[in-house]
Design a protein around this nucleic acid. Structure first.
Lengths: 230, 230
DNA sequence: TTAGGTGTATGATTTATGTCATAAAAATAA
DNA sequence: TTATTTTTATGACATAAATCATACACCTAA
């Protein structure tokens, strides 16, 4: 990660957006920008928590690991998203790893400063609380899916979610290229099964694929796949 | 659910514990107590969110459902625990159901009042945020386990967690009687597999069982089961 | 007392998904 | 360019866990 002198637009992240006028100079003084390239790790599961990140440019995957070689992608973060908040209040070690999926720029705050910001800025704290509440809901929904939904349903669900979060690009594909392996890790299945399911979905004309780009060709049926097996 | 005239001890729940002196009369005026018996439902998945509950006495399971008949228990709540917070900020419908596992008494706040409390009480808001952060971590850990850990490991993990949360009773069993079905729903497996795994664990002298009560007889090995298959 | 529900207990069978093996293709490095 | 690593692609096989079927034990309601 390289330090980046150029500042952010003071609009993208929560801290800047909700910042009190009086607190702005402090934010300006404290924040650090970093550039990172594809594959760079912002922080690793088990590392002591030092601060919190806001993604200013690029995409990042947040993932947990188990038993050498098995990973579960917990979340994909995009511009404006907060990353590293999972370390707050915790055992003071990051419970997840954050890895850049493409060149990215992050805005970083030391934990102490961020906490101080929360102390003085009620609105910021409230927004953060709401954000956690939302993430908790998402997480528990995925938990239930993992427990009861078959892989195909989880895949359909994931694709719909990705489409909703990232939208389509000019060519009509989900604006978020993903390796098959990352897709598999995201839905909590092996590479092979995910691949097979995707192939099946292509044959059924539910999705179309071009390299790492995917598009939904029959959302109706995909939605039904999430509802339950029939 | 029956209304309960008798007040709480003003010590158990977060709102009472962190309440500002000036705000206390309002709390006293607003809070409602309910008694419920085993099997009573506090609120159901999909119901519009009306308020938030604090458990004053008894135990409650918080569960999600999928496709008729399949449930996943998201959490067991005990005295002092908050229940219904998953509704905050959300689509305004509860994403989970809460069911009493034994006779219980709850303290209830209307959502508007609770939100107002958060507005005026920074400390309360901060604690709530930390609580969410913690729950999120737990949830994501369980998510990973569901994705990658075999049933036996999840069972071992669940038993250790339950023991840590509820402790042992005077007879040396986990102070939290659980039906096999609830145990199964908690680890995200079917009743039958859970039963078989439990039987296996009894044979291996890892646990001992008396009806719905369970005790850990070899924590060492149980801990190792969570680490990974070998 | 019987009857009927609910939870417990197990065997037999099926199936979804993971594991293993291998190879082509594509990307990246030398 | 060639070499080498990473990603994609598939088939064959193994197996964990779900499903189905059935029976018994234990309450508690009639």
């Amino acid at each position: 990660m390289k330090k980046n002198k150029q500042g952010c637009d003071r609009q993208t992240c929560l801290v800047c957006r909700l910042c009190l006028k009086e607190w702005l100079p402090a934010v300006q003084a404290q924040k650090k920008h970093f550039d990172c390239k594809k594959g760079d790790v912002l922080f690793r599961e088990g590392d002591p928590v030092t601060g919190i990140y806001f993604l200013y440019r690029g995409k990042v995957k947040v993932h947990k690991h188990w038993d050498e070689g098995k990973e579960l992608i917990v979340r994909f973060a995009r511009e404006g998203d907060i990353v590293g908040h999972r370390g707050i209040g915790a055992d003071m070690v990051y419970p997840v790893t954050a890895t850049a999926l493409e060149p990215a720029t992050v805005c970083y705050f030391e934990l102490d400063f961020f906490n101080a910001s929360l102390k003085v800025n009620h609105e910021l704290l409230y927004e953060l609380m709401l954000f956690y509440a939302w993430e908790l809901q998402e997480s528990e929904k995925r938990m239930r899916n993992l427990a009861h939904m078959p892989v195909k349903g989880r895949l359909a669900n994931a694709l719909i979610t990705l489409k909703e979060k990232f939208g389509y690009d000019k060519d009509g594909f989900i604006a978020f290229p993903l390796s098959r392996q990352d897709l598999a890790s995201y839905i909590g299945a092996t590479y092979e099964t995910t691949f097979r399911m995707l192939t099946a979905m292509i044959e059924e004309n539910l999705v179309a694929v071009s390299g790492r780009y995917i598009t939904l060709t029959n959302e109706e049926k995909l939605h039904r796949l999430r509802e339950g097996p029939f």
